[in-house]
Design a protein around this nucleic acid. Sequence first.
DNA 1: CTTTTTTCTTAACCCAGATCAATGAAATTC
DNA 2: GAATTTCATTGATCTGGGTTAAGAAAAAAG
Lengths: 191, 191
Amino acid sequence: MPFENITKIIGQFVEVKEEDYEFYVKMLSVVHLKKNECWEPIGTIGKNMGFVNKGILRQYYTKDGEDFTEMFFSENEFFGNFISYLKNKPTELIIQALEPCEIVMITFDNLQKLYAHIPAAERFGRLIAEQKLIEMHDKTSAFLMQSPEERYAKLLESKPDIVQRVKQYYIAQYLGIRPESLSRIRKRAMK
Amino acid sequence: MPFENITKIIGQFVEVKEEDYEFYVKMLSVVHLKKNECWEPIGTIGKNMGFVNKGILRQYYTKDGEDFTEMFFSENEFFGNFISYLKNKPTELIIQALEPCEIVMITFDNLQKLYAHIPAAERFGRLIAEQKLIEMHDKTSAFLMQSPEERYAKLLESKPDIVQRVKQYYIAQYLGIRPESLSRIRKRAMK
DNA sequence: CTTTTTTCTTAACCCAGATCAATGAAATTC
DNA sequence: GAATTTCATTGATCTGGGTTAAGAAAAAAG
């Protein structure tokens, strides 16, 4: 039952009518990513939205040979190269599986069909977009208002599973610091 | 001719048909803000979008008695408490005039009417939203990838007028540093 | 299970930005 | 336009994170 989770999550946003269920399912497919595998080829235009059934992914940029991790996605979260799709231009964004992942996939094109066929889905799409906007906003303001140490404490509180399951240098990238510094922060926090 | 600038700007996004012009104008109004005056009362739900005809504003949060400036808006830019409007909840966001401002205003409600009446306007609305999303994204990645000094250099290059017209401690807030540090960065940069 | 590679920790030193305090410059107020 | 408040600069000192390098621990490969 690969669509069990996503059905539950969509149901939290909008009412999924019995008669629409099949149409939803027809738009969806399931893909598996091996560890370290990437979601879409680098330098292409975003075509697909994903939903994490199982596993963790990270979204990152590379600049001067250094990685900058922007976000993690774990079970029951949506992700995708939205900006590339919206701008219809390739971006440098990379989304990579950090564990073997099972992903429910919908192409942005099918998403549009879904909107056309099921008006309630439009509401769902808007809510996802808004949620992404708010997440991004929260992250920006965290960089403005908090120290790396505070940001780590917040992450630990809001997403303890991520901290457990993800290599520390990815967490450090996410916080905007070096792995060595994160190690010190963790040591300080133990007391 | 308070609508001259906005007409030009909208025209860059979508074609404004002669016969629609009057409808556009009917949706718009002009407000003036005195220096230090705020756009919408604090703690209310975002109701209006603004377009800067003349002046500069800053968008900021207050936390523990300290201000964190997120963004500046000057001539020909759109602004508004979009997140509050989208969530239909008040936010702590404050938008304040740093100079006497002339603002072209449209209520979000009228914006919806505009969408309904002129399909091309929907495209304009989407483009504005995307632009805001991209701006926000750029700002987050700047915090991840650049030092305060580099962020200042970038601001100086991309918005020299802002640096000229805005008090330095607002610039410092925007860069996420103290005014004293900005002063030192400026001194270093002179050489 | 052993070897090899990757990741994490620790230490020593450096530096940009924070903090505190004082002074000078500029903008407001009256 | 003098007085007062606000803002910018500078100096001294402190600190958290960066850098470099080494060794320990854990994970992957064989």
